[in-house]
């Protein structure tokens, strides 16, 4: 079963928070939703999580107890221990033996020695890992994570992505929001949003191939409105050039898409 939304539009206070957005979440596939502050990521994820938000368009999601939703903040009880958090989450989702189900996940992410510790006393990375584990014990059909790695250091981030992969291998469709594009190279599908609209969508390869023109590294750009910094050099988009120059990364492609939309300066 493919979960997701089609042609989803959400209006808050006369402003379109989401504008005709389509996202498919297939089993074992990890889709990354990328965008800055105000792009609409959280609204999209909340709708996927089955929250009652007025919208138009089609929403196809599993029943609530087959969903795992990890919000951007919170998601664990600070005054319960790690083990109690897992016990609680297991009872909510009807997991027969939460401690045993969680054990291998705790082991692989370095949380195993801390089951007796209060969640509020864990480091940010540890707490985030607990939050994710507690929402995947019931092997959800759809796992939704809102910026799970924001503010988290690279070692914990790597553990979090291994949990995400483990959920996908268990058959879940996974949707992960992120503010950083370098992370999206890990996902098999990417949806980039800006102010509620789809900027680009597809596999990372498709997204890169969809970029019109070429991107080159230059000392000083011919047209600064179509250029951005990359260290000491500039990257410049040449809209009419045949594919050449440097191999763009996802960040370049998204900048180009934003430039194409605005015709230069934001």
């Amino acid at each position: 079963m493919t979960w997701g939304v089609a042609d989803l539009t959400v209006v808050f206070d006369g402003r379109k928070a989401l504008d005709a957005v389509t996202l498919h979440a297939r089993p074992t596939v990890v889709t990354s939703v990328v965008g800055g502050d105000g792009a609409g990521k959280t609204t999209l994820l909340r709708i996927l999580a089955g929250m009652p938000i007025p919208h138009s368009g089609t929403v196809t999601v599993p029943e609530k107890r087959r969903i795992g939703y990890v919000p951007a903040t919170g998601g664990v009880f600070a005054d319960l221990t790690v083990a109690e958090n897992l016990e609680f989450s297991g009872s909510v989702y009807g997991v027969a033996d939460p401690a045993a189900t969680a054990a291998p996940l705790l082991e692989r992410t370095g949380l195993a020695p801390f089951t007796g510790r209060l969640a509020g006393d864990l480091s940010g990375g540890m707490r985030r890992k607990l939050s994710v584990i507690s929402k995947m014990l019931h092997r959800p059909d759809l796992l939704i994570l809102d910026e799970p790695t924001t503010g988290i250091d690279p070692v914990s981030r790597s553990d979090l992505w291994r949990l995400i992969a483990a959920a996908a291998t268990g058959g879940a469709g996974v949707v992960v929001a992120s503010a950083y594009l370098d992370e999206s190279e890990r996902a098999s599908s990417v949806l980039v949003l800006n102010e509620g609209r789809t900027v680009v969508a597809g596999t990372p390869g498709e997204v890169k191939a969809s970029m019109p023109g070429a991107v080159v590294d230059v000392e000083s750009p011919a047209d600064p409105t179509r250029a951005w910094r990359r260290g000491r050099l500039w990257r410049e988009w040449l809209p009419d050039a045949p594919p050449s120059g440097v191999l763009p990364d996802l960040e370049d492609v998204v900048i180009v898409a934003a430039l194409a939309e605005t015709g230069g300066r934001p």
Partner: peptide
Amino acid sequence: TSGVAPLARARLWE
């Protein structure tokens, strides 16, 4: 530039 959209991040770095 944590949490900033790519084009806005590019402009801050500029």
